[in-house]
Structures are given as structure tokens and as C-alpha cells.
Design a binder for these strands. Structure first.
Lengths: 121, 121
DNA sequence: CAAAACCATGGAGTTAAGTCAACGGTTTTG
DNA sequence: CAAAACCGTTGACTTAACTCCATGGTTTTG
């Protein structure tokens, strides 16, 4: 599919998609039609984009994500320690989730306190 | 305590602390000693800073946090709908945590896959 | 009491992640 | 087939959250 359709279906802007592609997060075949230079995205790009959203929600930077996607599926070329890298990311994300859940609890408590206050304190 | 001590104990830079104060996230009494203009932070600033870290891990912006802290404890002055605001934040954070956990799962799977690969595929 | 260590303010600079604008080709459509 | 709708590239701009720097007071310390 072309960039416009992917943008509509993913909810991202065309600019964002081109940006992600430049960063190596998604890929497109250069238009099979030869005559133009339009990008052609496979259906699975939508899945990848959803996973990118998950990663961003977990606080991952695009640079780290590109590192992950590039290095991990490249079957561990040479001196890249995938296990150590993954372990570090996992620890970071776990810490983040723990903090986020603690915050969520306090938000819920604040909400309950508000609800329990009829009109004035 | 003065800014240097708070910085050491919180792990944040003095600049960050002054920045947070300017944004209304933390408060200090202007030095009781009168002669200088040094900030004087109460012990609880450390707790507040930890909560701020939780909120940031949950994806809250400083602007939203300032809004929360300012409006909510100001006993709902006038036209500010605290319940709606809280409900919106809660929904956002829940969605974020869900996504983050999904990402964490895939990280763990990737890790397990790596561990299961002795030397070559 | 002088040097070192701290603090303040104001403003410029940085980084990440997009976003926008300008200009010029390609496709689609009425 | 001409206008509308798409697409491409390059490069400048934006926003959030800091970070750095310069300049000049205040405290602490040996």
C-alpha cells in the first residue's frame, strides 16, 4: 500500500511514516511500478507500527528501537551483546511500569476522594 | 535544606530542581535567614520528586502535572472539572501501561529466544 | 580572611520526535 | 485532458524537558 493509505490506517502522519522509515523502523519496497518513486508498504507495516507504539509507551527511544530491530534479527553479527542489551531494556521497562502503576494508584485515589466530596469539602 | 543537598539526595541536577520549581512542581520558602536569597526546601520535597518521577514514567507531561497539583489541591476553585480531567488522565495512563506491558512481554520472549540459541541458529 | 564551595538569575543551547513549507513530479478523476 | 489528489525530497521550524554558561552575590573552611 502507499503512504497515504498507511497513514490513514495507522493514524500517523505521512511525515511521521517517512521519518520512521529514515530511522529504520519500517521498510518499503521502492514502487514495483518503476515509473514513479512511490513507497510501497507491505500489510505488516501496520503491525510493526503498532509494536512501535507499544515500545514508545514503554519509554523506548526510537534509536534504541532501531538498534533492537536491526541487531536482533540480524542474527547477532559480531561483537554485539544482544543478551546484555535486552536485559538492560527489560530492567528499564520493568522499573517504568512499576512507577507508572504506582502513579495510576494515586490518580485513582485522587479520583475517589473527589467523588466522595459532594459539594464542598 | 538547600538546593545542593536536595540535588544530591534526589539524584537530579540543581538546574532541574530550579526548572521544576519554576513550573510549579515543587516549592521552597525563600531562605529564612533573610540575608541571602537561597531556596530552602522542606524534607517532603524528596517525596514530591519521587512522585514526579512516577508521573513521568507514566507519560505525564510537566504541564499536566502542574495542572493536577495546582488545581486539585486548590479545592476546585471554579469552572475546573477535576473529575473529568482525572478520568482522562487515568484512561491515558491505563492505556500506556497496557501497551508497555505488551512490549515487555515481547522483550522477554526475544530474550528467551536468544538464550535458547546456543551458538548458531 | 582568602580561597573554595555554594547559590541566584537570565538567557542561550541541546536532543528527541515530529511537523511544516516549498517545489516539483505522478495518478486519479470528472 | 485538466484539475484535484498523491507522492518525493530537502531543509527549516516546533515543543518539551532539560542543560550550560556567564556574571555576581553568600557561606564555609583551612
Amino acid at each position: 500500500m502507499r503512504i497515504g493509505e498507511l497513514a490513514r490506517r495507522s493514524g500517523l502522519s505521512r511525515d511521521t511514516l517517512r521519518f520512521y522509515e529514515k530511522q529504520g523502523l519500517i521498510e518499503s519496497r521502492p514502487g514495483a511500478e518503476a515509473t514513479n518513486s512511490y513507497r510501497d508498504y507491505p500489510e505488516e507495516a501496520l503491525i510493526t507500527l503498532d509494536q512501535i507504539a507499544d515500545a514508545q509507551a514503554a519509554g523506548m527511544s526510537i534509536a534504541d528501537l532501531a538498534m533492537l530491530m536491526g541487531q536482533l534479527q540480524a542474527a547477532d553479527p559480531d561483537g554485539f551483546d544482544g543478551e546484555a542489551f535486552l536485559d538492560a531494556r527489560i530492567a528499564e521497562v520493568e522499573a517504568r511500569v512499576t512507577r507508572a502503576e504506582r502513579f495510576l494508584d494515586s490518580l485513582r485515589q485522587a479520583r475517589a476522594a473527589l467523588a466522595a466530596t459532594p459539594v464542598l469539602r
